[in-house]
């Protein structure tokens, strides 16, 4: 089966420490004021003493049908064979069409390069057999990344074991971040 790179994010394990955002910035030289990933809060829900707050980390969903790729007028926005969505900087003219086209607002205009910028799945780390920086640093083990099509991967095992959801599926983008809200006491072994 073809490789389909994606993320599994366990919201119940996120404590909103924002280390993923710091790690990403450090790894990828993301300019201050912009970010390739984020942690969104549900806000405080319920009434005292029964209150809760859920954090939902995110980044580029590396969609199956990425609108950012189809709208790109120069072919700079691409979906690789392994499913990772990237921007080829030399082709990017900075028209920002992909930024408006992304329903997850996962892209931004990089003020330093003048190009569209986004999560690259830390390609440079992947080539060395490492996990993306945000996954590596996640102390609550909320973030996981790998080949969703490989049954031996952590991500595939998690999806198989727990109910998961994706964001804005009705927009038709086929996002490749799967969110698990249930309590996950133990992270399975795997690739």
């Amino acid at each position: 089966m073809t490789v389909r790179m994606g993320f599994v994010i366990i919201t119940s394990r996120c404590i909103d420490c924002d280390a993923c955002m710091v790690a990403c910035r450090a790894e990828n030289d993301v300019p201050i004021g912009k970010t390739r990933n984020w942690v969104k809060s549900s806000g405080v829900q319920g009434e005292f003493p029964k209150v809760k707050e859920v954090f939902q980390p995110g980044n580029c969903m590396h969609c199956e049908h990425p609108p950012c790729v189809s709208v790109c007028p120069t072919g700079a926005s691409q979906k690789r064979a392994d499913g990772i969505v990237i921007v080829e900087n030399s082709k990017c003219i900075g028209c920002k069409y992909c930024i408006t086209a992304c329903p997850y607002d996962a892209r931004f205009a990089n003020p330093e390069t003048g190009k569209a910028d986004k999560c690259t799945f830390c390609l440079q780390r992947l080539e060395q057999g490492l996990k993306p920086a945000c996954v590596q640093t996640c102390l609550g083990k909320s973030r996981h990344a790998g080949d969703l099509n490989d049954p031996e991967s952590v991500v595939a095992k998690l999806i198989a074991k727990y109910p998961s959801r994706q964001l804005l599926t009705y927009v038709g983008t086929g996002p490749n971040i799967y969110y698990i809200d249930e309590v996950v006491p133990e992270i399975p072994e795997g690739k």
């Binding site: 700079a76 082709k91 990017c92 003219i93 900075g94 028209c95 205009a109 003048g114 190009k115």
Partner: peptide, 11 residues
């Protein structure tokens, strides 16, 4: 409005 105006010929 382009971020990389000198790249526009790519269009």
């Amino acid at each position: 409005d382009l971020g990389s105006p000198f790249n526009f010929y790519r269009l």
